[in-house]
Design a protein around this nucleic acid. Structure first.
Lengths: 251, 251
DNA sequence: GATAGAACTTGACGTAACGTCAAGGTCAAG
DNA sequence: CTTGACCTTGACGTTACGTCAAGTTCTATC
């Protein structure tokens, strides 16, 4: 009562290559191998294949499927774990979709404006009125002048660092790091140093003042335009909390 | 005015390996290569890297990024195309998440029931009352008896074919095949043949009757439990339409 | 029994975007 | 001259198979 590899492949609408692959991984060994090397499968193989295909449709990886089938993992637990992963992936996609849409919008609105540089402006110049309201017109004028005085290379390098910082903050928030931990505080230090370079920031030279630093931290949470650079609301809150801790310790 | 590979890597918070990779692909060639083989990058490189990293964060593949940067592709068009792909991926994830949840539920409700076979029943026995309402109690009794009379291997093989058919229908719907085309009609033929094996289906022996076949097609669309096996509402409608065409031509 | 064609085998490369050794030059500082 | 930091090329590993390639075996036919 056994079938050839092609019989089984046709039954399951898959390929012999796939069955051989599963055989190589030990997921679905042939029930019998002829003296000529031909693989044969019996009814138990079919049941096992049925389960493999089910789990694969759910998106589980082959090693995970192996663990479930080998009783080394509770199926229920494996599925729950997998579900968490799927939800995370979905969130990632949602964020990417939002970003792509925003980028398309920006491109269409400012088509001819962007000659060489993708996006001009940065945290401060981009949000003029907010900065002026908080720290006065002088602060804005100073940082704006500083920005304009930079060469293209300097501007680009600056933006590169800005993006890198934002990405690292985001990664830290996702990894759920402790805000008082070493890594998160190192990021806060980078944030401090980064602000250090911007004239118009109260206390520059010695570095931003405690008040300014804390005010900026709150701004990240309060204004969604800022939050976008730090991984959304949740990310911004993580950034703020780490910055607050940093300020209390060092400023 | 140039920087070493490490300088640039640190600036962008990436690795030298990544920069070398981009160099190998022609995405970001060094602006200068020393006689010692060392790579050096200038300000234009930084601007280019800035754009590469932006697009990569949006999820574009490196070849696509290359096309955009090389002006071989309109950025706007590329992003729109990418957005479509992202949306599709998201739909896929939504479906998978639903499936995983359903499977977890089923597992918890019927924990001890499932000794060897994952799911018992099939289209007909699973939806007793619907089948009886449409084609009478006799139809159900016959197909139920047929099902019970099969060996484990036969049942498994049957389910394997059922799943394969469902998956192929789903793929066909996603690919947007023409319902009157060769491939879709071949699927309808398989659907017909598959029903052929089930006693209790009116007209079996000669194959299902036209009326039964059409009724089943409508059922797939009307009942979401059936639709689930054929790729949701949209998939079920595709199946129905192809089946209707098949019935008109052959029954 | 010879032969063609279908089915089977193992082996190996390719995929996306790098991470991660490995082995070996180059350079600045002491 | 040595040490250590930094640089190079080369190559394997990752996921789940697809896709040849080359050789062997089975089956049907003449």
């Amino acid at each position: 009562m056994d079938w050839s590899i092609q019989d089984v492949a046709r039954l399951a609408s898959t390929t012999s290559r796939t069955l051989r692959h599963y055989g190589d991984l030990g997921l679905l060994p042939p029930s019998r191998v002829g003296s000529n090397g031909y693989r044969f499968y019996d009814e138990h193989s079919l049941v096992r294949l049925q389960r493999i295909l089910m789990l694969r449709e759910l998106g589980l990886g082959l090693p995970a499927i192996g663990d479930v089938l080998g009783q080394q993992q509770d199926e229920n637990a494996a599925l729950r774990h997998h579900l968490d992963w799927l939800k995370q992936e979905q969130q990632r996609l949602v964020r990417q979709i939002r970003s792509v849409k925003k980028t398309i919008d920006t491109l269409n609105r400012e088509e001819q404006l962007m000659a060489e540089n993708m996006f001009d402006g940065f945290d401060h110049t981009e949000y003029l009125e907010e900065v002026e309201r908080r720290w006065g017109a002088d602060a804005y004028r100073q940082s704006d002048a500083w920005w304009r005085s930079m060469s293209t290379a300097e501007k680009t390098a600056w933006r590169l660092r800005q993006r890198a910082l934002g990405a690292d903050w985001q990664a830290a928030a996702v990894r759920g790091l402790d805000i008082v931990g070493e890594e998160a505080q190192a990021l806060a230090q980078r944030q401090f140093d980064w602000l250090h370079g911007i004239p118009g920031t109260p206390g520059v030279g010695a570095g931003p003042t405690r008040e300014y630093f804390l005010g900026l931290a709150e701004l990240y949470v309060a204004d969604e335009r800022f939050a976008a650079n730090y991984g959304g609301q949740v990310g911004a809150e993580f950034v703020r909390d780490a910055m607050v801790v940093f300020a209390e310790r060092n400023l």
